[in-house]
Nucleic acid binder design. Structure first.
Length: 773
DNA sequence: CAGTGAGCGAGCTTCCGCTTGACTT
């Protein structure tokens, strides 16, 4: 029996620390928060001064009772949750939930998981910081009040099951507004002039590209310029070289890791976090949910050793980074390899790639600057005030670039600066050709998941542990979709002067192709518009920053937490009530036109189940007809013809095997209805144009799959036992319960006797699909 | 999952942050 019980948040951490502390210490984890506000109601007693109603989270009951038992048998309980707002609250909740006495309880904290740091922490226990706990309570209660008062308002005014909150609603706003900017964006074109000069240097011939120091807005001006160039002479006017340097990026935080893994490896945010978690649990990297760029002294020393050994001492530069992020709490280190001498690791391909990225970033952050030399060559044109500029860049010393270079989101198709041949002032330049190419101004860039995380972090909204869940929430609620969208073709003019002749071509380029970008849906736009109109204060990009300042004041003991909440809540609640009374239900209804057949109005709007078209007025005597929009259609862009097409559903395609085949769109997308069964239509098929032949193929294919589903069947006292082949492998079905088949047994060879054993010895799998009535 | 949409009305939905498994048919 250990005399000491240490409680940390994560089991992987518990394992490591357990090794440092020896036999007298038992280290256990509580898996994060163990209590939360009651979910059944608001969970806050407003009248009594916003008293939170905490209950032990259902999934933590087992852990709490286990810890409680261990605590009873221990002399001292060391609460070692993270040293930030949430961690302090976890420690306090543990005291309450485990019913610990103050005499036997000590609060400790450490920022790095090394033996000396932990031993030092044990030497310096402290009390719970109640002010910090209060700051957390304020944060928690504010989020609950905002979320649980705004969401029901949306149910009443827009449609059921919608949600709103301090964080998610701002995330949706960012995406909706970006889309609006893109919609309103007017692309301006101008003509970019590039001269290509031939430079002979002994036997070596090279081409130097130089850009004119101005652009022309009209083609005529560009041609006039080229005309003048026909008879011109070109001379080097000036050669300017100046040194410059590049500095490595700071070590990874959650947010920057997500961004780089997205840019360099095309990982989704959720994927990056899943793989990072695997690396963390196998002890290969430090904790992956952090906002700190700090590296431990031990890591700095290891990095220095590794760089010296692999690249030489001139590549070493020990750097300590400062966190600039708003509201950072820095309870952990930056994300880095646990052992910097391991350049590669065992693991699957994704793990290896992510690890390599983390290794390179960490090592590079401790390396010397890259030293560059930039050259600008100015080329004058006789009888002309304009001049050409050629830019070159050479690397004098690669420094950290030997290992790693951070990527950027903007496309950098142009401006790659290479090496220039030696040129001196006064050199005569021989021109090969001069082009005037029409260039269009760039529309704003749509958000990828990782770019959204970056923006949220800049605004101080969300935490490392929530970036991935935020993205999944706003997609689950249907506010946002992540999609690839095809681009379009745009024509541009290219005018070329060569051998005294000017030619003009009309060329085309493909632009605007989007890969894995976030787009607002109709519902996202409608909800966002409603919230921005009526709750501009909550949707304000600075709302979080403002309340965070107040949380800080609470943490410093300068402000009472429920006073702060009270000051916020009452005006906010009035706003809710006012909106409830004074606004009508919103549906985004728009009159699209008139049905040529019946003369009835056609509307588009958001219905109970999403965007739909409506034929006929709601208040007319005849019941209006409804039809859902197809995937990819929007109430914003749908045309009258497309709307009319939707009313052609359900379509009777004909008969197969003496039964009717019908195609339509339902709650879960397009489907085929045949012999009272549903077959979903693959997404590449259009329900409006799919043929009878194709639907029969789909039906037959599905039926074949069904037939293969049953591997074996037995009758057992009149009850059916089936060995089935499902989406997640083979399983047993008996009396509507499913049973796992033990690993290592061939399901095809199972006998009735063996099936009986499995049923009697294994727990049936819980079905999550069970819905309460 | 299950293939609707007004009207009737009961009963449901919802927040953010901290942490991992269990387990889907």
């Amino acid at each position: 029996m250990s005399k000491n019980l240490v409680i940390v948040e994560s089991p992987a951490k518990a394992k490591t620390i357990g090794g440092f502390l020896g036999k007298n210490f038992l280290v256990k984890s509580c898996m994060g928060h163990v209590v939360d506000l009651s979910k059944k109601d608001l969970g806050v007693d407003i009248e009594k001064g916003f008293i939170p109603n905490y209950i032990i989270s259902p999934e933590k009951k087992k852990i709490v009772s286990e810890l409680k038992k261990l605590a009873k048998d221990s002399e001292i309980i060391w609460l070692a949750s993270d040293e930030d707002r949430e961690g302090e609250a976890i420690a306090w909740h543990l005291i309450e939930a485990l019913e610990l006495h103050s005499a036997q309880t000590k609060r400790i904290a450490f920022h790095e998981i090394t033996k000396p740091a932990i031993l030092e922490a044990i030497e310096k226990p402290r009390e719970i910081d109640k002010n910090l706990v209060d700051a957390q309570q304020a944060r928690r209660v504010l989020d609950r009040l905002v979320g649980f008062e705004l969401s029901p308002l949306l149910w009443r005014k827009i449609k059921p099951s919608l949600s709103a909150g301090r964080v998610q609603s701002v995330a949706v706003r960012l995406i909706a507004e970006r889309e609006e900017e893109i919609k309103n964006f007017q692309s301006i074109s101008s003509f970019r002039i590039v001269g290509e000069f031939i430079v002979k240097n002994g036997k070596k011939v090279s081409i130097v590209k130089a850009e004119l120091n101005r652009r022309f807005s009209k083609k005529e001006e560009a041609i006039r310029f080229l005309e003048k160039c026909k008879s011109a002479e070109y001379t080097v006017k000036n050669v300017e070289t100046k040194p410059s340097k590049k500095t490595p990026a700071s070590p990874f935080t959650t947010s920057t890791l997500q961004q780089e893994a997205s840019r360099k490896l095309s990982f989704s945010v959720a994927n990056t976090m899943r793989i990072a978690q695997e690396l963390y649990e196998s002890g290969k990297i430090t904790y992956m949910r952090t906002d700190s760029v700090n590296l431990s002294e031990m890591a700095l020393a290891l990095a220095k050793k590794e760089i010296t050994g692999s690249y030489g001492p001139e590549y070493v530069k020990t750097r300590k980074y400062q966190t600039k992020t708003k509201g950072a709490q820095e309870a952990h280190e930056a994300i880095r390899p646990t052992y910097l001498n391991n350049k590669i690791i065992e693991g699957d391909r994704s793990q290896k790639r992510l690890y390599e990225l983390i290794w390179k970033r960490t090592i590079a952050s401790q390396m010397a600057d890259a030293e560059l030399e930039k050259t600008i060559v100015t080329i004058g044109i006789s009888d002309n005030n304009e001049e050409f500029q050629a830019k070159g860049e050479i690397i004098k010393f690669d420094g950290f670039l030997k290992v790693y270079m951070e990527s950027i989101d903007e496309d950098d198709s142009e401006g790659k600066e290479g090496i220039l041949p030696p040129l001196t002032s006064g050199d005569h330049m021989e021109v090969d050709k001069i082009t005037a190419q029409e260039k269009f101004s760039q529309q704003p860039i749509r958000f990828t998941e990782a770019m959204l995380v970056k923006k949220l972090e800049e605004l101080g909204i969300g935490r490392p542990s929530t970036y991935a869940p935020i993205i999944s929430t706003i997609q689950k609620r249907g506010y946002v979709v992540k999609e690839d969208r095809p681009g379009f073709t745009r024509n541009y003019t290219l005018v070329t002067l060569r051998n005294q002749k000017i030619t003009e071509e009309l060329l085309s380029e493909n632009i605007g192709y989007e890969k894995a970008k976030l787009f607002p849906t109709d519902i996202g736009n409608l909800v966002n518009g409603f919230l921005v109109q009526h709750f501009a204060n909550i949707l304000d990009y600075n709302f979080t920053a403002t309340v965070e300042e107040e949380f800080d004041e609470i943490a410093e003991g300068k402000l009472i937490w429920n006073k702060m909440i009270s000051d916020f809540y009452f005006p906010f609640h009035k706003q809710i009530e006012g909106t409830l009374e004074n606004t009508k239900k919103v549906s985004g209804e728009k009159l699209l036109g008139v049905d040529p057949q019946t003369g009835e109005n056609i509307f588009v709007k958001i219905g109970r189940y999403g965007p739909m078209v409506q034929l006929g007025n709601t208040d007319s005597e005849q019941k209006p007809k409804f039809a859902g929009l197809k995937k990819g259609q929007s109430i914003d862009t749908i045309t009258l013809d497309q709307a009319l097409d939707l009313f052609k559903l359900p379509r009777k395609l004909g008969e197969y095997d003496a039964s009717e085949v019908i195609v339509s769109i339902g709650r879960f997308g397009p489907y085929i209805f045949y012999k009272s069964k549903f077959f979903s239509l693959p997404k590449e098929e259009d329900p409006l144009s799919v043929t009878l032949e194709r639907t029969i193929e789909i039906i037959v294919e599905k039926q074949n799959l069904e037939n293969q589903k049953i591997l074996k069947e037995f009758q057992d006292n009149g009850e059916l036992i089936q060995v089935l082949n499902g989406r997640y492998g083979t399983y047993l079905s008996y009396k509507k319960q499913n049973y796992k088949i033990p690993k290592g047994t061939d399901p095809r060879l199972l006998s009735l006797e063996e099936c009986r054993t499995i049923i009697s010895t294994t727990q049936p799998s819980k079905s999550k699909t069970k819905k309460k009535k």
